[in-house]
């Protein structure tokens, strides 16, 4: 009897250890939420980033293999604010207890009028260009992981605190770098309208060629107005994006005399080649490119 009890205890102990060793399966549909999950979850999570660097999230559609990954996940992360128009497919493919978290939906949106449709307003889904939003997103992911694995609450909290401290330092650096640029020169001409949160936090005015989505049509009237604005406002540089065709911007520079200021990362993280594969790297790249071109 005593021997059986000891064996039972040993079996239970080993089972608990094995269960504890299994990381939480997270599937992420944004390069930004992939980084947050990795930072907050640490070794306790296994994150599969489906939407990778260089993929346009506005146009992405999940493939059958992606939906298979979703089926085995405990947590599905999307950036939200209508960026992913396929969330119903993810919900259908997920197991009953899987949590689908549209991270950006947890905090307020900036909205803007959609071109051509006077009464319609759309949410700007590019919330991560505000470091303050990023800090909120970290806590949203921390809460979700804690609900899935309450025993790891302290680890998630410690990781989230460390990441938040890193984001605070980054925000301090951004503010000091942008302070090098006179406030009357903070005018950003970009391929599509992805930097509204950045503009709000750091005092810029945005003049985009397209609307909030890269799929929005480019109107000739809009381009003509933009050319006039660049001339009137004496904007020194315009910026293209890593996954966009810079042809229209090149035409605008030819019309206005403004220069191409460089490449910005609007829809997610970049590649290791230019150190934009991390959130911090992406923000440092964008801010340096903007400030140096507009000075």
């Amino acid at each position: 009897m005593k021997t059986s009890f000891i064996i039972l205890l040993l079996v239970l102990s080993v089972s608990v250890r094995l269960l504890a060793a299994d990381p939480i399966q997270v599937v992420s549909f944004s390069t930004i939420t992939t980084e947050i999950a990795e930072k907050v979850g640490g070794k306790l999570v296994k994150v599969t980033g489906v939407v990778k660097a260089g993929i346009d999230p506005h146009e992405y559609e999940p493939k059958p293999d992606d939906l298979k990954e979703v089926g085995s996940a405990a947590l599905i992360l999307a950036s939200g604010k209508h960026m992913e128009n396929y969330t119903s497919k993810l919900q259908e493919s997920a197991a009953p207890n899987t949590v689908l978290l549209q991270v950006g939906d947890a905090f307020p949106s900036l909205t803007m009028k959609e071109e051509g449709e006077a009464a319609k307003t759309v949410e700007d889904p590019h919330w991560w260009h505000s470091i303050a939003n990023m800090k909120k997103a970290v806590r949203v992911v921390q809460d979700a992981l804690t609900k899935i694995s309450p025993a790891d609450k302290d680890s998630f909290a410690k990781n989230a605190d460390a990441y938040e401290a890193q984001l605070d330092e980054l925000d301090k650096w951004v503010r000091a770098k942008i302070a090098e640029l006179p406030r009357d020169k903070r005018k950003l001409v970009t391929s599509h309208d992805a930097f509204q949160y950045f503009a709000r936090d750091y005092g810029f005015t945005i003049y985009p060629v397209q609307g909030v989505s890269t799929q929005d049509a480019i109107s000739s009237t809009g381009v003509a107005e933009l050319v006039q604005t660049i001339k009137d406002q004496h904007v020194k540089a315009v910026f293209f994006e890593n996954i966009e065709n810079p042809k229209v911007l090149k035409e605008i520079t030819a019309e206005t005399g403004a220069k191409i200021g460089g490449e910005l990362y609007a829809d997610g993280l970049g590649e290791k080649t230019d150190h934009t594969e991390t959130y911090e790297g992406m923000i440092r790249h964008n801010v340096t490119t903007i400030v140096e071109a507009l000075k």
Binding site: R175, A176, I178, A179, P182, R183, D184, R186, G203
Partner: peptide, 10 residues
């Protein structure tokens, strides 16, 4: 220089 948008001081 003090534009109407203001100035930043670090």
């Amino acid at each position: 220089e003090f534009p109407k948008e203001g100035i930043d001081l670090e």
